[in-house]
Amino acid sequence: MHAIETKDVSFSYEGGGFRIAHLDLTVEEGEFLAVLGHNGSGKSTLARLLNGILVPDSGTIRVFGTPLDDQHLYEVRKQVGVVFQNPDNQTVASIVEDDVAFGAENVGLPREEIAKRVEFALGAVGMLGLRNAVVSRLSGGQKQRVAIAGVLALKPRVMILDESTAMLDPRGRREIVEVVKKLNREEKITVILITHFMEEALLADRAVVMNRGEIALTDTPAGIFARHEELLTYNLALPRIGVIAKKLTEGGLRVRDTLDPEQLAEDIARSVRR
């Protein structure tokens, strides 16, 4: 069974053109998928469609076989958690653990179960020690970890991160990436990571590039970053390391098109010594 399956999904905002056009996307259970695309390519719209915040104009979305419709809305939402971009705009409570409990309270779990889940979720993001902290005093990375914990308390099987690292500093970004990797590996949560950062996309099993509301490319992350011409057509920047490798090649040095600095160094060393 697929974790997520969309068939011919289209969506447009009132007055605007198509944001999502005839989208077919399948995500397998336990997969780590990266979604790339320039601003306005429809990535965030996709995140909001997959857990029913937005409703498609046409087409169907299934989550573990359950159709995403009015009848199954909350059933699906429990399974698909979304973490958004702005660390400040996702918390409803001032105290960490109160906020983490919010989702679990909403679905009417008994108190003992909520307590267990808050414990689990805070543990999973490494925030148990700060459970009674005031949210506004936390760092950006910590706030986003609270947001992830708030989603985890609903025990989702899929987690979507909609540019959740875009507003963080490098340290905060590392924190989030570590947590997400762990959730995917240890908790077997299917991850859909929407991002601009190449290093983050490289963690995924598979990456898709969105352009004008369609899926333009599907490949391994390394495979995608190797397609220089195509990336440029979709308004994406080449990875920096690719640019360097390309310049070296143009200068007559034989180096592979790689995304790993170690590998590039190895090639340069071999090529220089020869």
Binding site: R240, V243, I244, K247, L248, G251, G252, L253, P261, E262, L264, A265, E266, I268, A269, V272
Partner: peptide, 24 residues
């Protein structure tokens, strides 16, 4: 750094262009 570990010192200003020029 990776090159250094392989015994190659590149003395550049850490811009991509200068690095490529020095390597070549």
């Amino acid at each position: 750094l990776a090159l250094q570990r392989r015994g190659i010192e590149i003395d550049c200003d850490f811009t991509a262009d200068d690095f490529v020029a020095k390597v070549l």
